[in-house]
């Protein structure tokens, strides 16, 4: 997962950053090897610590890996708009802003979904964790909603990072927080109360919980509340992101800070 720390290091945040992901030399290590290694690491750590079972870690870490393209790619997208000087243009046309950003978010959501599904498949084969064929479709749906929610957080993070110098640092902290808080490797019931309370407001928490139930054979209906909560959180973060962007834009027109590259 820290591949992305590097990815953003220095010049790779350039305009071509998104396109350079398409190289297999980058795709395979970051989107396939990295997530699988994370699953194996935590599953074995769980065995060593004597907590959880393999299925718990496979699903938690696979879904959490969807957050990585979502958080980082949104940062790059908004960063690029700013670098090219088109962010201002985007923001002064309020009517078109929402479809525009959502259009940009769609490939990111698909990317996150694909990463999570590949990791899920590989993890279940390597660790012999059975996933019911009947639950595959609903599992895909739950992961897609989680990826959407992460992308929403990614947009909010990207908006915030217009105001901080090191975008990559902020993005990594966000991903780190998700790793610790969202019930990826430590069940919410084992977290201190305040952490569990924070987790309710983060993307992934509800998505991962729903994914675990669905993989264990539960129907979509029984995880409806979690899926709705995840979707609602995603929408909330998208709105927060858009409001922040508009506000920073207004601020920067006053103080001329936006186009400082």
């Amino acid at each position: 997962m820290s591949s992305f720390r590097l990815f953003l290091l220095g010049g790779l945040t350039s305009y071509r950053a998104l396109f350079s992901w398409l190289s297999p030399w980058i795709l395979i290590p970051t989107f396939i090897v990295g997530p699988i290694a994370q699953i194996l690491f935590f599953a074995y750590a769980g065995r060593a610590a004597g907590v959880g079972d393999d299925a718990f870690y496979v699903i938690g870490n696979a879904v959490q890996n969807a957050a990585i393209p979502c958080i980082f790619a949104m940062g790059i997208t908004v960063g690029d708009e700013r670098r090219q000087g088109t962010l201002g243009l985007l923001l002064v046309s309020p009517a078109r802003r929402i479809p525009l950003f959502l259009g940009r978010a769609l490939p990111v959501v698909v990317n996150g979904l694909a990463v999570a599904l590949v990791a899920l498949g590989a993890g279940s084969v390597l660790l012999d964790v059975p996933i019911h064929a009947s639950s595959l479709l609903s599992l895909t749906g739950v992961v897609a909603v989680s990826a959407f929610a992460c992308t929403g957080l990614g947009l909010a993070n990207a908006a915030l990072s217009l105001r901080v110098r090191e975008v990559a640092v902020l993005s990594n902290l966000v991903v780190g927080v998700l790793l610790v808080f969202a019930g990826v490797n430590v069940p919410l019931s084992d977290l201190p109360g305040w952490m569990a309370a924070v987790a309710q407001w983060l993307p992934l928490t509800h998505g991962i919980a729903a994914a675990r139930e669905v993989a264990a054979g539960a129907g979509l209906a029984s995880v409806r509340d979690d899926v709705l909560a995840e979707a609602a959180l995603g929408t909330l973060y998208v709105l927060v992101g858009l409001i922040l962007l508009a506000w920073f834009e207004r601020e920067s027109r006053r103080r001329a800070t936006l186009d400082v590259a």
Binding site: W25, P29, T30, A37, Y44
Partner: peptide
């Protein structure tokens, strides 16, 4: 190799595992 950094980061967790840092 211009994309060797990706290889380096992919090695992060496998080495944690294989060197017995935790397991």
């Amino acid at each position: 190799y211009r994309t060797a950094w990706a290889l380096g980061t992919a090695l992060e967790m496998p080495v944690w595992l294989i060197c017995g840092f935790l397991v």
